[in-house]
């Protein structure tokens, strides 16, 4: 007679343990299994959050750990919200966030739509297109610094080739008006393939029979695109926007290596600004308040967005 794996485990369990386990309710067993996870979450998520809130109400500096701690109430919050430099940093982040998402969604969807068509070399092109997102952001930041170099950089020469402008007459990462676009270009180059893959998954999830039914009803390709393709891919697109939005809100590595936040503070995104406050100026209390403000912003925006996403999925 053969036994199932569960039965074999049951037989192998020593009688003492088995009897103790039999005495536990389902609820107790559930708690036993869930408790380590909850403990871990409390330790690495909730406790640091509560501690950060506490620090944000003080003048604590991590490099002066022995100094007397002074409660400053909401002074750190009011200083941040009335600091013009912080708002400039927020603006730089908004510019980066909006333009990268717009470009990545537009180009990513277009590429997915093209790749979804059956043609020779389809897989090869997919592989080539997704290569940039497999690179380390540090590597990308470094080599785009060279590509943008006015005297030897390929980017300037390409622009010069098409426009006739002297390649050494402009500096993508040194010019105040061009630098914000330089980081948008690099992020778009790197992460458009990610949006493309999500869109491709969406496109491939649409059953052919829907298009066949539309064709029988004499719907034009344009009509099919707007009434079938776009609505059915929309949840996927929104998911891509959510992922890219969260990622780019906390963008640090690539931009640090590419521009260092400069020229001046033109590309100093909030995460770079926060890092400077926390780990270069060592204003721990102040930067804790800053982090809490950013957390509430991202959490609030993401919650609203997820609700909208759920509504779209339910349609």
């Amino acid at each position: 007679m053969t036994h199932s794996p569960i039965e074999r485990v049951a037989f192998a369990t020593p009688p003492a343990i088995a009897s103790r386990a039999r005495g536990l309710s389902d609820r107790a067993l559930a708690w036993i299994f869930v408790t380590p996870t909850i403990a871990l979450l409390l330790a690495i998520n909730i406790f640091p959050l509560v501690w950060t809130i506490r620090l944000s109400l003080t003048n604590y500096r991590a490099n002066r750990a022995g100094a007397e701690l002074e409660w400053v109430g909401i002074r750190n919050y009011t200083r941040i919200l009335t600091d013009g430099d912080i708002w400039l940093s927020m603006q730089a982040t908004a510019h980066f966030l909006i333009w990268t998402i717009v470009l990545q969604v537009a180009i990513g969807f277009a590429l997915a739509w093209l790749i979804n068509r059956k043609f020779k070399g389809n897989d090869l092109w997919t592989t080539i297109i997704v290569l940039p997102m497999m690179l380390s952001p540090a590597v990308v930041g470094n080599f785009w610094t060279f590509l943008y170099q006015p005297q030897i950089g390929l980017f300037n020469y390409v622009v010069s080739f098409f426009t006739g402008i002297d390649p050494s007459s402009f500096s993508m990462i040194g010019d105040v008006s061009l630098a914000p676009w330089s980081i948008v270009i690099v992020d778009t180059w790197m992460w458009t393939p990610f949006v493309m893959l999500i869109c491709l998954a969406g496109l491939r999830s649409i059953p052919d029979y829907i298009y066949e039914a539309a064709a029988i009803d004499r719907a034009s390709p344009w009509r099919q695109f707007w009434t079938i393709t776009v609505p059915m891919v929309l949840p996927f697109l929104m998911l891509a926007v959510l992922f890219r939005g969260i990622e780019n809100f906390k963008m640090f590595d690539m931009v640090t290596l590419l521009t260092g936040g400069g020229p001046g503070s033109t590309t100093e995104l909030t995460s770079i600004n926060l890092k400077r406050e926390a780990f270069e100026k060592w204003r721990t209390g102040y930067s804790s308040a800053y982090a809490i403000i950013l957390f509430v912003t991202v959490f609030g925006l993401a919650s609203i967005y997820v609700k909208a996403l759920n509504k779209v999925k339910q349609r």
């Binding site: 002066r64 105040v176 400069g262 001046g264 270069e280």
Partner: peptide, 23 residues
């Protein structure tokens, strides 16, 4: 000073904003 890092970063920002970014 013990707070040299803060003083330095403020200087970096002010100087770069003016000299390089022309603000």
């Amino acid at each position: 000073e013990p707070s040299y890092a803060t003083l330095l970063q403020d200087t970096q920002k002010r100087f770069h904003d003016y000299v390089v970014a022309g603000q």
